[in-house]
Write a protein that binds this DNA or RNA. Structure first.
Length: 306
DNA sequence: ACCCAGGCATTGG
DNA sequence: CCAATGCATGGG
């Protein structure tokens, strides 16, 4: 069954194709998300109910309007509202980009990126759990390998729903991964250690009632302290959770090799940039370092001047 | 056959 | 406190 579309307005400027493209790594399909012919699709897991959201942009970058169409079981009006809120969060629709753009004016390189990628918002994950698991499985390995493993994880353990002849996957639930043995997880081409990490994180997320999802009120430092107490979660992983799951605006994961490479090429003529140096350099973008991170990564992914 | 990749925990100075 | 090491796997 399909319900009438729900319309909502993101904060302008909002470039739908660029934002959903970033979310799918500019590959059309990435894990649980797809962007196909102007339609962003994701199977939402709303309190255990699976709902396929199909999102299209009706307006322009400066007057954006998104239409969310829902399909799935037992849709209620309240469910429709929750689905629209979830979609809005996933696409980072409320980001105050203009504040970041104003700050970037003082920096010709970053300013250039904000012009090229004008309207790119920061996509979020549906949960802290999802952000942590994705970050852990991406530790140290190349993005290609991470993509293979992520796909295996989602298609092996994610809740699935077939709609209109196509099968869609939501991100695996904590209780599912907590119930899987480390031995089973090893079949996902994870290292033994990462299988343990993910299993442990899933147990924490599943057992303590929403312990991982109650970090919203804590300041960044406290969130990092809480998360790095988990085995397998270091500063880099915790920072990605701050960025992806909590949408904190002033985070710069200076330990990230690719991020430092982008800084090196764009600002230091390719010379090696150490973590400490990158952290100091990033202060020029505070209090909007998260968006600087996003735009630098986009430059990398699209191969723009990097 | 190597070496590296969007880290981390562990071990040994 | 800092350096070295192993980790799974796909691509160069």
């Amino acid at each position: 069954m399909t319900n009438p579309a729900i319309i909502f307005r993101p904060t302008a400027p909002f470039d739908f194709n660029l934002t959903a493209g970033y979310l799918t790594y500019f590959r059309g399909q990435y894990g649980s998300d797809s962007l196909d012919d102007g339609a962003y699709r994701r199977l939402l897991d709303l309190q255990g109910k699976l709902v396929l959201a199909t999102v299209r942009c009706l307006g322009t970058v400066d007057a954006p309007e998104l239409a969310v169409e829902l399909a799935g079981d037992s849709l209620t009006p309240a469910g429709g509202e929750a689905a629209a809120l979830r979609v809005s969060w996933l696409l980072g629709a409320d980001a105050p980009l203009n504040d970041f753009y104003a700050l970037a004016q003082a920096d010709p390189v970053m300013s250039g990126l904000t012009v090229q990628f004008r309207g790119l918002h920061l996509p979020h994950t549906a949960s802290v759990f999802e952000a942590l698991v994705l970050a852990v499985l991406g530790q140290q390995i190349s993005t290609n390998v991470a993509r293979v493993i992520r796909t295996l994880l989602i298609e092996t353990y994610g809740p699935r729903q077939t709609i209109g002849g196509a099968t869609y996957f939501a991100f695996p639930r904590p209780e599912t991964l907590a119930a899987a043995s480390v031995e089973e997880l090893l079949r996902l081409k994870l290292s033994g250690r990462k299988a343990e990490y993910i299993q442990g994180i899933a147990q924490v997320a599943a057992e303590r009632d929403a312990g991982l999802e109650s970090l919203q009120e804590l300041p960044d430092d406290a969130v990092v302290a809480r998360l790095t107490a988990l085995r397998g979660v270091g500063l880099w992983t915790a920072q990605w959770a701050l960025v992806r799951a909590l949408g904190r605006p002033d985070v710069f994961p200076a330990g990230d090799l690719a991020l430092r490479r982008a800084v090196s090429r764009l600002y230091f003529g390719g010379a090696t940039v150490e973590e400490r140096q990158a952290e100091e350099f990033s202060r020029r973008w505070s209090p909007w370092r998260t968006y600087a991170t996003l735009y630098l990564f986009t430059a990398l992914r699209l191969g723009v001047a990097v």
